[in-house]
Simulated assay, not measured.
Amino acid sequence: MPETRKKYDREFREGAVRIVEETNKPIAAVARDLGVNEGTLGNWVTRARAEREGRGEMSAGDIEELKRLRAENAELRMERDVLKRSVVLWVKEATK
């Protein structure tokens, strides 16, 4: 006897994915709580992450790394500018 497939509306799928991502609970636990097959919820989560990456949205880790890299870049630019000024002063002293 063939199994009947359940259809879940978009809001339910998005809500389930949001629960997994925001609570950091295992997919299996959330699937059990919602009465959804673990593989099905896993597919929803994978698809949502792929869509988000395709749209260019960044994860929290990406945002933190971007902040760190921007701060490092600003520091390196400042160091470069200081070195440029010191070379100019050194050249002026050497040509006197």
Rank of each mutant, 00 (worst) to 15 (best):
E3N: 14
T4F: 12
T4E: 14
R5F: 11
R5S: 13
K6G: 07
K7C: 08
D9M: 05
A16F: 06
A16M: 08
R18A: 09
I19C: 02
I19L: 09
E21N: 06
E22C: 01
N24T: 03
P26L: 03
P26A: 04
I27V: 12
A28C: 02
V30N: 02
A31P: 04
D33T: 06
L34T: 04
G35S: 09
G35A: 10
G35D: 06
N37W: 09
E38L: 01
T40R: 11
L41N: 06
W44P: 10
T46Y: 05
A48T: 02
A48Q: 06
A50L: 11
G54L: 10
R55N: 11
R55L: 11
R55H: 11
G56D: 04
E57L: 11
E57M: 07
E57I: 02
M58T: 01
S59Q: 01
D62Y: 00
L66I: 00
R70G: 00
R70T: 10
N73D: 04
E75G: 02
E75Y: 08
L76C: 03
M78I: 09
D81E: 15
D81R: 15
L83R: 13
R85Q: 15
V87P: 02
V88A: 15
W90H: 13
V91T: 10
K92S: 14
K92G: 08
E93F: 14
E93W: 14
